[in-house]
Design a protein around this nucleic acid. Sequence first.
DNA 1: ATATCGAATGTTATAACATATCAATACGCC
DNA 2: GGCGTATTGATATGTTATAACATTCGATAT
Lengths: 159, 159
Amino acid sequence: MSTIGFAPHDHASCVADTMQRAESHCADQGLRLTPVRRRALEILLAEHRAQGAYDLLAVLAAEGMGAQPPVAYRALDFLVKAGFAHKIEALNAYIACAHLGECQMPAFLICRACRSVAEADTAPTRNRLNDAARAAGFAIERTVVEAEGLCPSCQDAAA
Amino acid sequence: MSTIGFAPHDHASCVADTMQRAESHCADQGLRLTPVRRRALEILLAEHRAQGAYDLLAVLAAEGMGAQPPVAYRALDFLVKAGFAHKIEALNAYIACAHLGECQMPAFLICRACRSVAEADTAPTRNRLNDAARAAGFAIERTVVEAEGLCPSCQDAAA
DNA sequence: ATATCGAATGTTATAACATATCAATACGCC
DNA sequence: GGCGTATTGATATGTTATAACATTCGATAT
């Protein structure tokens, strides 16, 4: 279980790798990584933090790529459906997926102070919930697991 | 692990019991269950479904208990802080707690069609996420576990 | 080359969710 | 009664998200 996000790392290659994988995933699946979608993914990838749809929109607008909310929401929809990004429900914000595509049931550690997010992959977490669902005859389609708190550096800042 | 919510039950006594327990919990803790707060809890309890703040507000307003958003949000804040209600992040909506107060780490099964919600108590789910958090030096304050899908009756309706 | 069809984008408007702020009132306590 | 805090009332505004419809772009088939 990796929790990229709070630790320093080679971010330039982290971004480049992911864009590369996104490209080939789209080629494989017949998806179209259009300029707006591509740029949206780059913007999300630029930081390991949750960004609001309107934050994204502000950047796109500044670059002349559409100035209305639907532009941002459509790009985000595409990225989420393709598995390139996740919505952080607790913040109503979005983040690039750290495991591009290969991500079954993501779980997030979310700093409420700086909005940085680490992504873990916690498939086993599912069991108890699956048991409950089966017992109730409920068909799970998507699971949200989010832990809110303080990341190491915001804990230090608070001290 | 009980998953009240999808199955029929004696709802009148389910509501009455909960109100009773809320009363005594407030008495114990020195909390004030004012008319607006009491009524808000009743409204949430009336259905085992998530209700939006503005749905709640509409009912309160119809009964002459305040017509502005802050009225609803303040009541909801109180109920959530007291442990009488939960926010369903995936819906931006609210639901009465099924285990009044005694609820450590709630987990929800949420029907995307009818918004009915079952609450399970899945403390063990926590472990994997706790491990990841400890490893990353992250301090968890709150955990959200929500499964979206279709409840038994909406599955039947779709078939 | 061009007609056609579906996907993607542009644009306007509005819906839905949430909070800041400040004034007025109610409540518990001395 | 007088005081301080918690609660409510009211106005305004901020933030997140979608509906609806027109237009453009790209691939395909003729």
